[in-house]
Design a protein around this nucleic acid. Structure first.
Lengths: 119, 119
DNA sequence: GGTTGACCTGGAGTGGGCTCCAGGTGCGAT
DNA sequence: ATCGCACCTGGAGCCCACTCCAGGTCAACC
């Protein structure tokens, strides 16, 4: 079972070290294991969880809701229906975001076309 | 040439009155006309511009860049090529956003499917 | 003529999400 | 042994984009 140094996790996840510490501090990450010198050694699991965090964050989920999700995950398998519900609601919001962006994009592209005709 | 009261503009654009004042203060909106009592009376043009602002903002353009765009618009027709360039770059970022969201959405949906299979 | 309500101003405060800093530890290479 | 470097901590600071507030003006309706 391999472990990852902070630098490796930064490299793999794209989060900064400060952000990783921040996530641990607020409880989005469970207390990370340490070596003898007190330095963080992230588990495979930590890195996987960070992948999930990355995905949720990049789709605009606020930290407060990620915390709720983290709590559900920690509470055990009986919360899986709740997790499904949370993710489905989020999925709906992502859908809306995409629809919205696509619609706005049309406006921008029309504007560009208009400018091109004017020039 | 009709004018709009603050309340009407709030209604039409979805911005709050505070936000409209803020946009005027920072120069994203040119100084808005006033009636005898000093109250704002927005022109058709103001409302149109706010529509553009809404679109750019909702697609994630930072205020600093909207200000640059506003400056170009004010500088006259010879800046149209620059405006095209700015909007095209923004359009590219919107494209990326959509692609990114779509990709992340797959992950979320896979997660949901996985949970469903487990339950 | 009094009250309500929409509006005004300048300036302070908020919230989210980091980001930076000072001061310190421990390890490996020269 | 001493240097550089990756890492540690608690806490302060920052940036963005608003949002709120106190105290005031004016017009309109009852």
């Amino acid at each position: 079972m391999s472990v990852y140094t902070p630098a490796e996790v930064v490299e793999e996840t794209g989060f900064t070290l400060d952000t990783l510490r921040y996530y641990e501090k607020i409880g989005l990450l469970e207390p990370v294991g340490r070596n003898a010198a007190g330095q963080r050694r992230f588990s495979e699991q930590d890195v996987g969880w960070l992948g999930t965090i990355r995905c949720l964050r990049d789709t605009g989920m606020p930290i407060a809701e990620m915390l709720r999700f983290a709590d559900l995950v920690r509470a055990g398998d009986h919360t899986i229906p709740d997790r499904i519900k949370l993710l489905e609601e989020h999925d709906g919001r992502v859908r809306e975001q995409i629809a919205n962006l696509t619609e706005r994009q049309r406006y921008i592209q029309n504007k560009i076309s208009y400018y091109r005709r004017v020039v």
